[in-house]
């Protein structure tokens, strides 16, 4: 799993590619990344998941966790470019209402303004 990040105004856009799974340690990498962003004072985070092919249950749990952590620290985390597969997973697990999801990174960034 690879994580890239860029700034768009005061919004941090985190782009993830590869699988978010327990086996590849992606779930922990993601958590560490978001925690370090929050420590640096980031409040508005867009998670671009366009490059993510597969999320397993551990990865899903981590997504919910970082969403909650961000919220607890007064920030907001929004998803962009979620694949069909991930959307289905969110629907089955009924977690779809937990996240604010947007079709594109642009829309997700715009939603903060």
């Amino acid at each position: 799993m690879q994580i890239d990040q860029k700034m768009s105004g005061d919004i941090t856009v985190v782009h993830i590619s590869g699988d978010i799974t327990l086996n590849q340690g992606g779930d922990v990498l993601l958590k560490d990344k978001i925690q370090s962003l929050l420590q640096q004072g980031a409040k508005k985070i867009v998670l671009d998941l366009g490059g993510v092919a597969y999320v397993d249950s551990a990865g899903l749990g981590q997504l919910v966790q970082i969403h909650a952590t961000t919220k607890n620290q007064g920030g907001a985390l929004r998803l962009a470019n979620t694949t069909k597969k991930l959307k289905d997973l969110l629907v089955v697990t009924k977690l779809v209402t937990v996240f604010d999801s947007y079709e594109s990174e642009k829309e997700a960034v715009a939603s903060f303004n």
Partner: peptide, 9 residues
């Protein structure tokens, strides 16, 4: 019918 996964929310 039901609710979200257990132990998370």
């Amino acid at each position: 019918e039901g609710g979200p996964v257990l132990g998370l929310l």
